[in-house]
Deep mutational scan, measured.
Amino acid sequence: CHSECLGNCSQPDDPTKCVACRNFYLDGRCVETCPPPYYHFQDWRCVNFSFCQDLHHKCKNSRRQGCHQYVIHNNKCIPECPSGYTMNSSNLLCTPCLGPCPKVCHLLEGEKTIDSVTSAQELRGCTVINGSLIINIRGGNNLAAELEANLGLIEEISGYLKIRRSYALVSLSFFRKLRLIRGETLEIGNYSFYALDNQNLRQLWDWSKHNLTITQGKLFFHYNPKLCLSEIHKMEEVSGTKGRQERNDIALKTNGDQASCENELLKFSYIRTSFDKILLRWEPYWPPDFRDLLGFMLFYKEAPYQNVTEFDGQDACGSNSWTVVDIDPPLRSNDPKSQNHPGWLMRGLKPWTQYAIFVKTLVTFSDERRTYGAKSDIIYVQTDATNPSVPLDPISVSNSSSQIILKWKPPSDPNGNITHYLVFWERQAEDSELFELDYCLKGLKLPSRTWSPPFESEDSQKHNQSEYEDSAGECCSCPKTDSQILKELEESSFRKTFEDYLHNVVFVPRKT
Score class of each variant (00 low, 15 high):
339 Q>W: 06
189 G>A: 12
194 Y>E: 13
160 Y>C: 15
159 G>H: 02
317 C>F: 15
332 R>T: 11
197 D>S: 03
201 L>I: 04
376 S>L: 00
316 A>M: 07
352 W>H: 10
132 S>P: 02
260 S>H: 04
109 E>G: 15
205 W>V: 04
400 S>P: 04
373 G>H: 02
403 Q>P: 00
410 P>E: 14
344 W>C: 04
318 G>Q: 04
254 T>S: 07
322 W>P: 02
186 L>G: 15
306 Q>V: 11
140 G>P: 11
300 Y>I: 14
323 T>A: 12
353 T>C: 00
338 S>H: 05
267 K>H: 04
397 V>F: 10
216 Q>F: 14
236 E>P: 03
130 N>T: 11
290 F>K: 05
105 C>W: 00
392 L>D: 06
316 A>R: 13
167 Y>K: 14
224 N>M: 05
258 Q>A: 04
167 Y>M: 13
404 I>Q: 01
207 W>A: 06
234 K>I: 10
257 D>A: 15
110 G>S: 10
380 Y>Q: 04
189 G>W: 08
208 S>W: 13
333 S>F: 01
166 S>T: 11
403 Q>V: 03
235 M>F: 05
314 Q>H: 07
300 Y>P: 00
344 W>N: 12
366 S>R: 13
142 N>V: 10
171 S>T: 08
204 L>V: 04
175 F>C: 03
142 N>L: 11
377 D>T: 11
265 L>S: 10
193 F>D: 01
345 L>I: 14
273 T>V: 15
289 D>Q: 02
393 D>E: 09
315 D>I: 06
407 K>M: 15
293 L>Y: 04
368 E>P: 01
167 Y>F: 15
177 K>N: 15
313 G>N: 14
291 R>L: 07
192 S>D: 01
186 L>V: 07
358 F>T: 04
295 G>D: 08
162 K>V: 12
380 Y>F: 13
392 L>N: 05
108 L>N: 15
251 A>W: 15
121 Q>I: 15
171 S>G: 13
290 F>Q: 02
227 L>G: 00
273 T>P: 04
324 V>W: 10
360 K>P: 00
301 K>F: 08
114 I>K: 00
179 R>E: 08
327 I>P: 01
114 I>F: 02
325 V>C: 14
253 K>Y: 11
317 C>D: 15
316 A>E: 15
144 A>Y: 07
250 I>A: 08
299 F>E: 13
248 N>F: 14
151 L>H: 01
385 A>P: 14
252 L>R: 11
388 P>R: 01
107 L>K: 03
208 S>H: 10
157 I>S: 00
147 L>K: 00
197 D>I: 01
174 F>H: 07
138 R>P: 13
336 P>Y: 02
278 I>N: 00
175 F>L: 10
115 D>N: 05
400 S>A: 14
207 W>K: 03
360 K>T: 02
268 F>G: 00
357 I>S: 01
258 Q>P: 13
381 V>T: 03
350 K>S: 11
355 Y>F: 12
248 N>R: 14
303 A>N: 05
391 P>S: 02
286 W>N: 07
401 S>Y: 13
317 C>T: 04
174 F>W: 06
380 Y>V: 10
191 Y>F: 04
125 G>T: 06
133 L>D: 00
324 V>K: 01
372 Y>P: 11
169 L>T: 09
409 K>C: 13
106 H>Y: 10
321 S>T: 12
113 T>L: 09
324 V>R: 11
377 D>Q: 06
313 G>H: 14
370 R>H: 02
234 K>P: 01
173 S>G: 05
200 N>F: 12
350 K>Q: 15
400 S>Y: 15
118 T>R: 07
362 L>Q: 04
299 F>A: 15
237 E>R: 11
359 V>H: 01
148 E>V: 03
322 W>A: 03
219 L>R: 02
360 K>Y: 01
339 Q>V: 08
318 G>R: 09
288 P>R: 14
160 Y>G: 07
267 K>Y: 15
232 I>S: 02
399 N>K: 04
338 S>V: 12
157 I>L: 05
298 L>N: 00
156 E>L: 08
148 E>S: 07
183 G>S: 03
302 E>L: 10
241 T>M: 13
265 L>Q: 13
312 D>F: 10
172 L>H: 00
212 L>N: 01
255 N>A: 06
394 P>H: 03
181 I>M: 04
115 D>W: 01
299 F>T: 08
135 I>Y: 02
362 L>N: 05
241 T>D: 10
166 S>W: 01
244 R>K: 15
132 S>V: 03
192 S>G: 13
263 N>T: 07
174 F>P: 06
212 L>H: 02
241 T>I: 09
386 T>R: 07
282 W>T: 02
119 S>H: 10
133 L>N: 00
204 L>K: 01
390 V>T: 12
141 N>Q: 09
189 G>F: 12
309 T>L: 15
273 T>G: 06
217 G>L: 01
109 E>K: 12
162 K>E: 04
199 Q>H: 04
386 T>W: 07
367 D>N: 05
388 P>T: 00
311 F>K: 08
110 G>E: 05
378 I>K: 03
333 S>H: 04
173 S>K: 12
153 L>P: 09
260 S>W: 03
331 L>T: 14
116 S>D: 14
388 P>F: 01
143 L>G: 15
226 K>I: 05
285 Y>F: 05
172 L>W: 00
314 Q>K: 04
138 R>I: 15
121 Q>Y: 02
146 E>T: 05
112 K>V: 07
307 N>K: 05
254 T>P: 07
332 R>N: 03
131 G>I: 00
128 V>W: 14
336 P>S: 07
183 G>H: 03
277 K>W: 00
379 I>N: 04
389 S>A: 04
341 H>E: 08
170 V>L: 07
306 Q>T: 12
150 N>S: 10
306 Q>S: 14
115 D>E: 00
233 H>V: 07
346 M>N: 01
401 S>V: 13
242 K>R: 07
305 Y>S: 07
354 Q>N: 09
410 P>T: 10
278 I>T: 03
357 I>A: 06
125 G>S: 07
334 N>W: 05
284 P>Q: 15
268 F>T: 02
137 I>G: 11
370 R>W: 08
137 I>K: 00
230 S>K: 14
108 L>V: 14
393 D>Q: 12
133 L>G: 00
195 A>G: 12
211 N>C: 09
344 W>M: 04
104 V>S: 13
328 D>M: 10
118 T>P: 13
345 L>S: 13
112 K>Q: 05
216 Q>I: 05
338 S>L: 09
234 K>S: 09
331 L>S: 11
349 L>H: 00
245 Q>Y: 06
260 S>T: 10
159 G>M: 01
166 S>N: 13
168 A>K: 00
389 S>H: 06
254 T>C: 07
368 E>W: 12
408 W>K: 00
363 V>A: 12
394 P>G: 04
209 K>L: 10
294 L>E: 07
281 R>I: 00
136 N>F: 10
164 R>F: 11
243 G>R: 05
222 H>S: 03
179 R>I: 12
410 P>R: 07
211 N>R: 09
131 G>A: 04
231 E>N: 03
168 A>L: 00
266 L>K: 00
316 A>I: 01
383 T>F: 00
136 N>H: 10
235 M>I: 13
249 D>T: 14
269 S>M: 08
273 T>L: 05
381 V>C: 03
339 Q>H: 10
287 P>S: 06
276 D>A: 10
298 L>K: 00
193 F>P: 01
348 G>H: 04
343 G>F: 03
144 A>D: 03
380 Y>G: 02
187 E>R: 13
127 T>K: 14
247 R>I: 09
232 I>L: 14
377 D>V: 09
218 K>V: 14
383 T>I: 00
233 H>M: 01
149 A>M: 07
118 T>F: 11
261 C>P: 11
190 N>I: 11
144 A>V: 15
126 C>M: 01
116 S>C: 15
186 L>Y: 09
